[in-house]
Amino acid sequence: MATRSGAVLAGGAVSAVKFTVAALAFTAAYAGLSAYGTANSAPAPATGATLSARETPVTAEPAAQALAAGTVTVGALPTEPGCVKTFVARTILVNPDAGRTVSYSWKLARWSPSARTWRTYLVDHSGFAGARETAEWEATISGNPGWYRVELAAEGAKTIKSDRFRVSC
């Protein structure tokens, strides 16, 4: 009889340990999600810029393209081994009020055939102070072929969208 109650006690201790580990994992996940939600809830800075664009196709040599205010160019860098592709988006931003800071964001969007909509793949935020800025952003896509486009947005201005381009392995 003593061995049977000892086995039940040992089984109960194992269950208690499993329950404690599960509770700690749940608490850690909840704390992580709470911190993530808090970090994403910060309001965006209130700045504005006037942007316009002429859509251009992806080219093999981004450095050879001439930049001008109101245009966005997307070029592919030399391919890396495997299915890793790096693209460079460039534009010249003009600040209508050179005394204020302009905040802007780049977004790489991927076409979702099932949802039939563009979905955010990568995002980057930046800004500058002054009258003009040559903005450049490198986005790397690894092992995810499909249709993509680059979007540039500044608060108070229309979002600029590039032509779509295909990434294949």
Results as ranks from 00 to 15, higher is better:
residue 1 M to C: 08
residue 2 A to N: 07
residue 5 S to K: 09
residue 7 A to W: 08
residue 9 L to H: 03
residue 9 L to Y: 03
residue 10 A to W: 03
residue 10 A to H: 06
residue 12 G to K: 14
residue 12 G to T: 08
residue 13 A to L: 14
residue 14 V to T: 12
residue 15 S to K: 09
residue 16 A to L: 14
residue 17 V to L: 09
residue 17 V to K: 06
residue 18 K to H: 04
residue 20 T to S: 13
residue 20 T to G: 11
residue 21 V to M: 02
residue 21 V to H: 01
residue 24 L to A: 12
residue 25 A to N: 06
residue 26 F to W: 06
residue 27 T to N: 01
residue 28 A to V: 11
residue 28 A to T: 08
residue 29 A to H: 10
residue 34 S to A: 12
residue 38 T to Q: 10
residue 39 A to H: 08
residue 41 S to P: 02
residue 41 S to W: 02
residue 42 A to S: 10
residue 42 A to G: 07
residue 44 A to T: 14
residue 48 G to I: 00
residue 52 S to D: 09
residue 53 A to W: 14
residue 54 R to Y: 11
residue 54 R to S: 11
residue 55 E to R: 07
residue 55 E to G: 05
residue 55 E to K: 07
residue 55 E to N: 05
residue 58 V to L: 15
residue 59 T to L: 13
residue 64 A to P: 15
residue 67 L to K: 04
residue 68 A to E: 15
residue 69 A to W: 00
residue 70 G to F: 07
residue 70 G to C: 07
residue 70 G to N: 08
residue 72 V to N: 02
residue 76 A to S: 15
residue 77 L to V: 05
residue 78 P to Y: 09
residue 79 T to H: 08
residue 79 T to I: 09
residue 81 P to M: 11
residue 81 P to H: 04
residue 83 C to N: 12
residue 83 C to L: 04
residue 84 V to F: 02
residue 84 V to D: 05
residue 85 K to N: 06
residue 86 T to E: 10
residue 87 F to I: 11
residue 88 V to S: 13
residue 89 A to R: 00
residue 89 A to W: 03
residue 90 R to L: 10
residue 90 R to C: 12
residue 92 I to W: 01
residue 93 L to P: 03
residue 93 L to D: 04
residue 94 V to D: 03
residue 94 V to F: 04
residue 94 V to R: 03
residue 95 N to W: 02
residue 95 N to Y: 02
residue 98 A to G: 07
residue 100 R to A: 15
residue 101 T to E: 13
residue 102 V to C: 04
residue 105 S to A: 14
residue 105 S to N: 14
residue 106 W to G: 02
residue 107 K to W: 03
residue 108 L to S: 13
residue 108 L to G: 09
residue 109 A to N: 15
residue 111 W to K: 12
residue 113 P to D: 15
residue 114 S to G: 09
residue 114 S to I: 08
residue 116 R to I: 02
residue 121 Y to S: 13
residue 123 V to T: 14
residue 123 V to H: 00
residue 124 D to G: 12
residue 124 D to S: 14
residue 125 H to L: 10
residue 125 H to I: 07
residue 127 G to W: 00
residue 131 A to E: 15
residue 133 E to H: 08
residue 134 T to E: 12
residue 134 T to D: 01
residue 136 E to H: 06
residue 136 E to K: 15
residue 138 E to C: 12
residue 139 A to L: 01
residue 139 A to K: 01
residue 139 A to M: 14
residue 141 I to P: 03
residue 142 S to W: 04
residue 143 G to E: 05
residue 144 N to P: 00
residue 145 P to W: 02
residue 146 G to L: 10
residue 148 Y to T: 09
residue 148 Y to C: 11
residue 149 R to Q: 13
residue 150 V to I: 12
residue 151 E to M: 10
residue 154 A to F: 03
residue 157 A to M: 07
residue 159 T to F: 00
residue 161 K to C: 01
residue 164 R to G: 15
residue 164 R to C: 13
residue 164 R to Y: 10
residue 165 F to D: 14
residue 166 R to V: 12
residue 166 R to A: 15
